[in-house]
Design a protein around this nucleic acid. Structure first.
Lengths: 226, 226
DNA sequence: CGGCTATTCTATAGATTAATAGAATATCTG
DNA sequence: CAGATATTCTATTAATCTATAGAATAGCCG
């Protein structure tokens, strides 16, 4: 085999990964899988895409070995093939944030403008959890909370927040987090909480970022609020 | 704008980067640009691709803001848009190495099998440079050496190695490095050197890896061999 | 086993991309 | 300014990809 053919074969392999991430829907799927394993149907629903199309996209991801599957009865659960995939996804989005003006302006219009106060960094979040000076809310769907959450966080999906306000102690500042920098669950939660008179801020990092930082994750439905 | 539209718009942006890296030729171009800026013609030649096609690929990369250009006379020099692009490229290839069996088998057949002895890691390389117990050869094209090289390395492009053997001191072990883990220049250099009776090994990391590690880079043609 | 559900496979029309030829542009040189 | 060179733009065809319908598969439940 010649140089040229070796190179061609090699770059063709790397391009499989590029190709897998060349479709908006597939990146969204990977992003969702970064929150924990999910069935095809759940993914289809969350991306507002027909199951068949979702399955086709998942096949592409499977062919690039970015996801793995597990069968449970008639359901097939998809998950990321490794932590490095989640990391790669974060890097891809960071690169987008750094180099694509459109990402910046979308974030500005849809996140920052609504999240008037400064977001809580991971570092500050850790400190204030240690000091117990905040109440941490995980506003993602219950299932994602169960699959893994920041220790000490209480699960109140944003869809249930309005009718579960009574559960939230007044007095302490609230911090809401969700899937990541571009997830709007926490933005909505903070808007609602502020409208109801709470002091609330948003973490601009989600669970994948917490995990990527090597911090401990708690699983199950225990609401270890303190 | 609704959630859904925000998400669609956002993921469409991220997919631009995926799309840019969805073509083998474009990854190769990015890889070459990781060695330093190059003209369209040089890139076309090194990828064995018509200039027109190369220009078209470069346009796609430019549209994703992964590369920038600089004009000098009638030549247009392309370069990576930032260090983060080089890092992303490394991550993409690491992901490929971790998850694609084909990458592993290509590396085995084309690199490892020929590079019988264990490769020199960056860490060992640094130590032995400090201790001055090796002669370090940069076997990439001269132009890339001039654009940036490991301090203390001597430039002998692999194409000139055979007739410049006299320049290489006997006695000390030789370490050859080139563009990165999948670059075969250093493999060839080591093969030739061993055939001529030198003790020679290959660094499995190239200049971009050295730079990514935050280590100092020397530019210009000074052959600071010690 | 037969019906049911979740998912995948196969096929297909429409949209997108790749490669590249031909024309156009930008810059230098004299 | 005319000619030369490097590059880009425009247009075209072939190849590829997307979305999704229809058929097939795998496992559950009675």
């Amino acid at each position: 085999m010649s140089h040229r053919r070796f190179k061609d074969a090699l770059y063709e392999q790397f391009a499989r990964i590029g190709h897998a991430t060349a479709s908006p829907r597939r990146i969204e799927l990977l992003d969702l899988l970064g929150q924990g394993e999910k069935t095809v149907e759940a993914l289809a629903q969350e991306t507002a895409t027909p199951v068949k199309s979702t399955s086709a996209h998942l096949r592409v991801l499977r062919q690039a070995n970015l996801v793995r599957t597990r069968r449970e009865g008639t359901f097939v659960f998809y998950r990321l093939a490794g932590d490095d995939v989640a990391r790669f996804l974060r890097d891809l989005q960071t690169l987008g944030r750094n180099h694509l003006a459109e990402v910046q302006s979308l974030a500005r219009d849809f996140i920052e403008r609504r999240d008037a106060l400064e977001p809580v960094s991971l570092k500050e979040l850790r400190r204030r959890l240690r000091e117990k000076t905040i109440t941490l809310l995980d506003v993602r769907p219950e299932q994602e909370y169960a699959a893994g959450h920041i220790p000490g966080a209480r699960s109140i999906p944003v869809s249930q927040l309005r009718r579960r306000l009574a559960e939230i102690p007044r007095g302490r500042e609230i911090v809401a987090y969700c899937r990541g920098p571009y997830c709007v669950f926490s933005v909505e939660a903070v808007e609602l909480l502020r409208a109801k008179g709470y002091r609330a801020r948003r973490s601009d990092r989600g669970l994948p970022d917490w995990r990527a930082a090597g911090l401990p994750i708690e699983t199950g439905s225990g609401t270890t609020i303190r």
